[in-house]
Design a protein around this nucleic acid. Structure first.
Lengths: 160, 160
DNA sequence: TGTCATTGAGTGCATATACACCTTTTTGAT
DNA sequence: ATCAAAAAGGTGTATATGCACTCAATGACA
């Protein structure tokens, strides 16, 4: 008559739960988890993970030393998350936090000499894994993916 | 003659670092961070975050109680990560872990009565934020995005 | 010029993530 | 029957993530 107590009583919920396989958030998080492992492995010889590399690269790429909040915005990262992530980089003497001359509240982020050196050394490893990833993905697909990920970030702001 | 000591010495590195704005891993992680906040907010009234919702939905959607490893695979999550994530759900009496009859090593995952109820109650909230997200994104774009995210997960496995 | 809202940043807390390493159970080969 | 390899799972440790709340500096305005 029935396969189990649970499946009878909860069959409609189970059915509905199958929709959640299409969850945008789940699928993006899942992809992030999976691809992060490849990048982390590639950067490991430099003592960096993909997140730390991204922070160094952002600071290094910004002409004027960005404030903490500006950097967090550019990284799509909660300000307080960046605060804590910077602790590791500060401790490893890769970054430094300077008090702004105009506004005593503002902390401007900069790379140390060692930070520039590590970033410089890590860039080829990053290029390698990035290249492999694009090859697997197809670079035309990356264009679309990139665009849609940007849209998604904007959508998140809309949904508030 | 120059704008600053740092920019002269590190200009080529700074230039190279600007490439990293195109980092696949960074952009996927960034999108995951941003969109997670919307889903977390939507699910909060049910005492769930997006990750916990995904785990409940996966277990609920799987006809036969999946083992821990099977569930981790389906979620694209490190097995040990799932172990720890399940602790919160177990403690909240939403999930239970059963020893398999055939293999004493295997733990099979199931929802409790309360777990089914919470999942059922959370599904409309999930549908709402999912619908808003798809509306912002355009559902045709979601098809492409979904496909590319899947490819990316497969690419990660290739790059090993 | 004295308030008070705004802005930039940090902390407490809870949760997520995964690698390295370990134990237990099962399987398979001899 | 035995023992080594493989498989399932857990733990130690380090890092990531963000919300709620707080503090301090700034700026706007009466």
């Amino acid at each position: 008559m029935h396969t189990s107590k649970s499946s009878n009583k909860n069959e409609s919920t189970a059915q509905a739960a199958r929709e959640a396989a299409e969850c945008v958030c789940f699928n993006v998080r899942k992809a992030a988890r999976l691809i992060s492992q490849s990048y982390d492995r590639a950067l490991k010889p430099h003592g960096l993970n993909t997140n730390q590399f991204s922070i160094l690269a952002l600071i290094g790429a910004t002409p004027d030393a960005p404030s903490l909040s500006e950097a967090a915005k550019a990284l799509g990262m909660e300000r307080t998350t960046l605060t804590r992530n910077l602790r590791h980089l500060d401790k490893a003497d890769l970054t430094q936090t300077l008090v702004d001359g105009q506004d005593a509240r503002t902390r401007r982020l900069a790379l140390t000499t060692k930070g520039w050196a590590v970033l410089d050394a890590a860039l080829p490893s990053w290029r390698s894994v990035q290249k492999q990833t694009l090859a697997e993905l197809g670079s035309g697909n990356w264009q679309h993916l990139r665009t849609n990920l940007d849209h998604l970030g904007q959508a998140a702001a809309m949904i508030g």
